[in-house]
Amino acid sequence: MDFYRVLGIAPKLQLNLNELQQLFYARSRDLHPDRFARAEASVRDAALNESSLLNDAYRTLRDPRQRAEYFLKHHGFDIGVQGTKDVPPELLEEVFELNMALEELKAGDESARPQLATARDQFSALLAQSDVELDQLFDSHDAAPGEPLLKQIRSLLNRRRYIQNLLRDVNGYLSN
């Protein structure tokens, strides 16, 4: 996995963000094109490619979810958006109620508005909770790597993305 290699770290899911930043700065000092302005063209090209890889790596790995997606992709998982179309079973009831409220609101029934606000708070809480779960799964996987855990991470990420989309829609309706 190039993103871990270019930063010089072992491929783990749990990363300390402060340490990651210090590593990024240190590697930037070594690889940035500014350091090779006087070098010949082939060296300059190599520095350009390597430092863009470093920047791409830092940008991806500092975000836990992007990091997880990168990790999954490199373990043979297809992390597309198709998974987000299926409603996670445990959310079926909430989504059903939300859709009812949205229909009422569209029909001009303002009494559904407080229900939307409740839904928003509920989804925000679920989102925060999924971040905690993801963090725990990272630790579990780093301690004892295995495909079952990666599968759990993938379904958690899909679930999270679904909640995030719901939240975006609700916020959209609430701000109108």
């Binding site: 863009s52 890889l53 920047n55 791409d56």
Partner: peptide, 8 residues
């Protein structure tokens, strides 16, 4: 606001 050089 991606740090440059950046690639995709």
């Amino acid at each position: 606001n991606s740090t440059i050089p950046a690639s995709e």
